[in-house]
Structure formats: structure tokens, C-alpha cells
């Protein structure tokens, strides 16, 4: 790609000016232990930082991977440059929504379906075999889940796109 054409200078200021993004030296700490980097497509935190630094606005706008973050904040704890990658991901999510009114992140569909972005209620058998208590998740409580969905339906983003939520 022609950087001269596609690159938006100082894009980072628009997205994440609060952080120390520029200190990033692509060491890969953030991705090497990231649980969401196992996904398909993988969440590659340092690639998001790179897109920001290079000013690749369009690529970043279309990127769905920030929504795959599981908020474990390991990248945040281990980043040697204190870039605060988790903060960066949250800022990218906000910026994406700000700049694209029609954007409905698939993660919201996940939340609507199961109450969480991630599959929290799984591994029930493994937990039992280890003698761990059953998780009191919303998924295991259909009544609560219905209430939760009704609540979500009242938000603009869900009600205006209700076709995506099976409604």
C-alpha cells in the first residue's frame, strides 16, 4: 500500500492520545500470551498499535478483532513500554463506534445471546470434575437472561438492528 495515500497522520491523536502508544517497539509481549490471539481471526494487539502508529485508518475501522479482547489485561501488566494496550483496545472500540454509526460489533450479538462477550458458562463438566462450585452465570438463569435481553433491546443500537438479534 502507498503510505502517502492511505496513511492518516496523527491518527493516534484521534484515537488514543492519552496513552504512551508511541513507545511501542513491537516486542510482541502483548501477543505472545494473549488468550484472544488463539482466535480466528486472532486478536493481535501489537498489530492494532502498529496500524494506529502508521495511521491506517480504514484498516483499523474495519478491524473486528478489538472486540475479541477478553479483558484479562495480561498485555497491560506485561508491556515493558507501559503502552497500556488494554486501554488502547477500549479506545479503539469507542473510536470505531464514534466513526461508524452503522457499526454493530458482533460482540454485542454475543452479549445478547449469552449474557457475556465470552463463553463463560462452558467447562461445566471440567469444573465439576475438579470439585469447583457451579458458576452462578446469567446463562444458567433463563429468567434473568430474558430480563437482560429486554433491557438491551431498549438501547438504540440493539433496537434499531433487532434483525441481528433474532428479534
Amino acid at each position: 500500500m502507498d503510505l502517502q495515500e492511505v496513511s492518516v497522520k496523527d491518527l493516534w491523536q484521534d484515537v488514543y492520545s492519552a496513552g504512551n502508544l508511541h513507545y511501542c517497539f513491537n516486542c510482541s509481549t502483548c501477543i505472545s500470551g494473549c488468550p484472544a490471539s488463539h482466535g480466528d481471526p486472532p486478536l493481535l494487539v501489537r498489530n492494532l498499535a502498529r496500524k494506529l502508529i502508521l495511521g491506517l485508518e480504514e484498516e483499523l475501522l474495519d478491524d473486528d478483532t478489538p472486540w475479541a479482547c477478553v479483558s484479562c489485561s495480561r498485555c497491560e501488566e506485561m508491556c515493558p513500554m507501559n503502552v497500556m494496550p488494554f486501554e488502547m483496545i477500549l479506545f479503539i472500540r469507542q473510536w470505531q463506534c464514534r466513526n461508524d454509526e452503522t457499526r454493530v460489533p458482533t460482540a454485542i450479538v454475543e452479549i445478547y445471546k449469552r449474557g457475556y462477550t465470552q463463553a463463560v458458562g462452558v467447562n461445566t463438566e471440567l469444573r465439576e470434575s475438579l470439585g469447583l462450585p457451579r458458576l452462578n452465570t446469567i446463562t444458567n438463569n433463563p429468567e434473568q437472561l430474558e430480563l437482560f435481553r429486554a433491557m438491551l433491546m431498549k438501547t438504540r443500537i440493539v433496537s434499531e438492528n433487532d434483525y441481528m438479534f433474532g428479534g
Binding site: C27, S28, T29, C30, I31, S32, G33, S37, R74, P80
Partner: peptide, 23 residues
């Protein structure tokens, strides 16, 4: 390998597992 790994995991057999990205 140009990668800073995030940590080392001790497996039950005593071996040390590392996950890394090979550029």
C-alpha cells in the same frame, strides 16, 4: 527468534512451556 515472551508455564511433567510468535 525475535519475540519477547510473556511468561513461562510449568507443566506437570516439569517441562517449561513457552508460547511465542515467530515473525
Amino acid at each position: 527468534i525475535r519475540c519477547r515472551v510473556q511468561g513461562v508455564m510449568l507443566k506437570p511433567d516439569g517441562s517449561l512451556m513457552m508460547r511465542y510468535h515467530d515473525p
